[in-house]
Design a protein around this nucleic acid. Sequence first.
DNA 1: CCCACCCTTGCACGGCTTTGCAAACTTCTT
DNA 2: AAGAAGTTTGCAAAGCCGTGCAAGGGTGGG
Lengths: 333, 333
Amino acid sequence: MSDKIFVSAEEVARKAGVSRSAVSRAFTAGASIAPETRRKVMEAAEALGYHVNHLARGLMRNESGIVCLVVSDMGTPYRSALIKALTQQLQNAGKIAMIVNTDRSDERVDMALRQAIRYRADASIVLSGMPDKSLVDLCVRNGQRLVLINRDDEHQGPLRINLDDDDTAQSVVTAFLRAGCRRLAFANSEAGTPSLMTREVGFVAAAREQGLDVTVERFGPTGYESGKVLAQRLMTRRERPDAVFCVTDLVALGFMDAARHQFSLSIPDDLCVVGFDDIPQAAWSSYELTTFAQPIEEIAAAAVAWLMSDDVGQSQSLRLNAPFVWRRSVRSA
Amino acid sequence: MSDKIFVSAEEVARKAGVSRSAVSRAFTAGASIAPETRRKVMEAAEALGYHVNHLARGLMRNESGIVCLVVSDMGTPYRSALIKALTQQLQNAGKIAMIVNTDRSDERVDMALRQAIRYRADASIVLSGMPDKSLVDLCVRNGQRLVLINRDDEHQGPLRINLDDDDTAQSVVTAFLRAGCRRLAFANSEAGTPSLMTREVGFVAAAREQGLDVTVERFGPTGYESGKVLAQRLMTRRERPDAVFCVTDLVALGFMDAARHQFSLSIPDDLCVVGFDDIPQAAWSSYELTTFAQPIEEIAAAAVAWLMSDDVGQSQSLRLNAPFVWRRSVRSA
DNA sequence: CCCACCCTTGCACGGCTTTGCAAACTTCTT
DNA sequence: AAGAAGTTTGCAAAGCCGTGCAAGGGTGGG
């Protein structure tokens, strides 16, 4: 590879007529240095195009400033919004985000964490997949902070951020009942992620409490196309559902499109739909999907706040609220 | 911050009963080391949880393995898809992506490049905004590779990847004419990005060649909401357009929604619409938008290939094709 | 005018790896 | 069995920055 010729502190020192350490101090917040000296250094640095080498600084300080984001399906609206919020807030906190894409192959999340260790990341934030317990231990042992978002694992040490889904199932059932729906369905993917399964189980249980059965269908990955297939399967049943809770907004939008264009159903007159995430598309006027809003900014804020805080503390678990967003895909009373 | 206690090569060497350099060689591809020695080292490393320190390695080799992605609006479907492709292909090439979010404030892209220099990134890929010339020079001078995607700047040194838009305007005009449309419009945002302006100018010129005028409207940022506003403005004109070319798919989808739900227009019967990007939502059955497909994978492949190649070469410019995707938002002949 | 104290600065070392070089060890040939 | 050729290994330096320590310079007070 080409020989990169970065300018070193040594050269700046020569040009400014001071010592190497003076240059170092000029770029270190809170170091003891005379204003005049700092000015001279800064001037020389700007002229030469000097930039502190964060690799070396990280080596010294044992703190690289890097935070590793472990994520798959980042093309998805929800995921990309979360990444956006995280990168922004990390930058505001003086950190920088490194992204490891773990699409296909679940063992990749372990590789991702190893990569984080190699770059001596200050922390890792896992948005997808579930790391192996031994890897988590390794991270923790190395003093690396770990945040697990929406992966209800039972790992010790890291911070877990999850949604408080105690009321969600109840809210949906109530909404459907008020709308006069009686034949409930749940449209799930085959991903089997804990958070998705919790939604399904909770909904079925809440419905049963009201004496209602739920038709559950599962298919494919968690996306728009699966939503269409799920609609085809559910809407061709003898007892056609009149209300469906979709595990995700993307699934819900696919479901709505199939229901409307393939079965000529009117929403919410013939069918009520509820989704989850509140991605931007849910608000588009073709859909106006009633859904639960992922508190994306709060999630990011909580993650960043925790990993900037001084007290590592023990394994901590945080539960955030996903407010119900009423739109027109469910009949009002 | 907590004291991270990473295990060093020194310790592995002691445990394996070899020298520090043997450990180093065990982890260096193509180094001269006996298989037996390597096995011993690897065993000790695994037992101790050792991972090569990429900060130190980068310092030594003058090659960090980091590639910096400079991007804004990463919540957008097109951008997130591009980031996904880039991170994936970079990883396959043995690099790792670092993301700098440049939302709001244009001067931030300069800060981003500085950040890239500080971390001694092997390359930077700019997806948004336009870096200052002096910064570009600085990167180049430091031997850092630079890729500009869809920013038709005239910078020297870096690789520029742009779309070949010679035929796009012509294609759209032809499609509209075949559909029997005569009152053409162009819906643009106020972003003023070169690539967006090129689309507008090209379309107006191509239409004029056919003796047709184009009503141009510009509003807001480049997104769904702006599309709705643009529809309100264009569809309340005395001479209501019967065909509109939207600068972006997101704008087009907002435009379609407003045209349908606020003006009760039928697409493509009353109005033909063409977008640009081919985001996933364009294919959704509520829209079936005719558009041009950004060759995302090719863009990523070209970028990665160039920055892995040995010959730096001079300022290089690459033009890729954005194929026309026919869907149902334009009447067929 | 001198002393004491504080701020500033330079020196040298530490932190972790890679790599050129030379020594040691194999192994094969004659 | 000895020498030559080729591997393998260890040593030491280099690459860059942060910081403890001690010395230098300056200032204020007595």
